[in-house]
Structures are given as structure tokens and as C-alpha cells.
């Protein structure tokens, strides 16, 4: 357990940065699937999330290493210290998260845009951009918010490959070393820790959800009835 605790900070740092990146990128993509007036642009952007979901994380990491570290020399290849060394692994980890989030988000965004309040807002003279970003996105974000637990779980799983590819110390690489040396207690500890993280995040989401969306408290029972 000590070993696990020792590497946890590094993994949490990586996963947190990846989460922020993933959410930002996911939201950006989702908005880009509805926002542009040009249909071809919307079409083009909407092909990205399915591609993102289909990319093997280890491969993305290797390609990023190759392009940004070797060909362009922009980012360092390894290390646990410094913001620069965090960029490539965090992007690698964020790709599947962003892709998944943007798929959910753009669905609910389109739904939200069909809701009456959007019409109302438009009728009141709010600009298209304001409606889409201000009203619809905020409401559409709620369903995506409930995915947080799964997303964080996915990120933790993703560190196994990402930390290996980038030779970073952390939970994921510890898992690989532990499996290689058949160190069952360490593997168990890692599994328990990651499950705890998932459960905690899910719990927090459940608790926070009604607070940020008061409709839920009213609506859910209504539907169930």
C-alpha cells in the first residue's frame, strides 16, 4: 500500500491535467458540431469523436512522441517534473476522454437546442452564439457531468499504457511492473484504489447533481410516476 501511495500523486497530477484537457477538448468539439453555420464543417468536426474513440492510447502516445519529441523537438519525452513533460502524456490520456465526452455532449447539446426555452431565448432576441453557449451548453453539460465517474475510471486505466509509453512513474506503470513480477498484493491494492476513486467520484457527482440542476429533484419523480 505504501508503494501505491508513493506513486499516487504523480498519477493524480497526470489524470487531473488530462481530465481538464479532456473536458475542454470535448466541450470544444461538441460545440463545434453544432455551432458552425457551414454544414460541411459541422460534418467534418463530427467525424472526430468516433475517430478519437477508435485510437489505441499506446499508439497515440507513440505518434505524439515521434512527432513532437523527435521530429519537432517541442516537448521533452519523459519525466515527472515540469509542465512541459506533462503535455504529451496528458494529451495522450485526454484523447479518448475528450472523444467520449464530446459524443455525449453533442447529442445532448442538439437536444437542448430543440427545447422550448431555447426558442424563447431566441425570440427574446438573444444571439445565436449566446443561446448556444449560454443556455444550451449549460444544460447539455449536465448529462456529460454524470459521466465523470466513468471518465475518471477510464483515465486511471489509461495511465497503465500512457505511463509505460512515456516512462513516467505512477499507478499505471506500477501496475505493469506488479503484473510482470506477479506481485498480487500490489495489483490488488491498485485495483481497490482505482475502484475507490470511481466510487468516490460517482458519489460526488450524484450528490452535486441536484444542486446544480434543481430540475432533477422535481422532474425525476414526475417521470417515474
Amino acid at each position: 500500500m505504501d508503494v501505491v501511495a508513493g506513486v499516487l500523486p504523480s498519477t493524480i497530477q497526470l489524470a487531473a491535467v488530462a481530465l481538464v484537457l479532456g473536458v475542454a477538448l470535448g466541450a470544444l468539439l461538441a460545440v463545434a458540431t453544432v455551432l458552425p453555420r457551414a454544414a460541411w464543417l459541422r460534418q467534418l468536426v463530427s467525424t472526430l469523436p468516433p475517430v478519437g474513440v477508435a485510437l489505441p492510447t499506446f499508439w497515440v502516445g507513440l505518434i505524439l512522441l515521434q512527432v513532437f519529441s523527435f521530429r519537432l523537438g517541442l516537448f521533452p519525452a519523459m519525466g515527472d517534473d515540469g509542465v512541459a513533460s506533462l503535455v504529451l502524456p496528458a494529451v495522450t490520456l485526454a484523447v479518448p476522454a475528450a472523444a467520449g465526452l464530446s459524443q455525449v455532449l453533442s447529442r445532448s447539446l442538439r437536444e437542448a437546442l430543440g427545447e422550448p426555452y431555447v426558442e424563447t431565448a431566441r425570440a427574446k432576441g438573444a444571439s445565436r452564439l449566446r443561446v448556444q453557449l449560454g443556455h444550451a451548453l449549460r444544460n447539455a453539460a449536465l448529462p456529460a457531468f454524470t459521466m465523470l465517474g466513468l471518465t475518471v475510471g477510464g483515465l486511471l486505466g489509461g495511465t497503465v499504457v500512457t505511463e509505460t509509453v512515456f516512462s513516467r512513474a505512477g499507478l499505471g506503470r506500477l501496475a505493469v511492473t506488479a503484473v510482470n513480477s506477479q506481485d498480487i498484493p500490489v495489483v490488488q491494492a491498485i485495483v481497490v484504489v482505482s475502484a475507490l476513486v470511481f466510487v468516490t467520484v460517482t458519489l460526488v457527482v450524484d450528490l452535486v447533481y441536484p444542486l446544480i440542476d434543481p430540475r432533477i429533484a422535481v422532474r425525476a419523480p414526475a417521470l417515474a410516476a
Partner: peptide
Amino acid sequence: ESSVRTGSLASGQ
């Protein structure tokens, strides 16, 4: 990772 060692040495890490 061999490639990471190469990259790290090249980038001065």
C-alpha cells in the same frame, strides 16, 4: 522505454 531515453537525452532532460 528506449525511445524515451533517446528523446530525453536529445532534449537535455
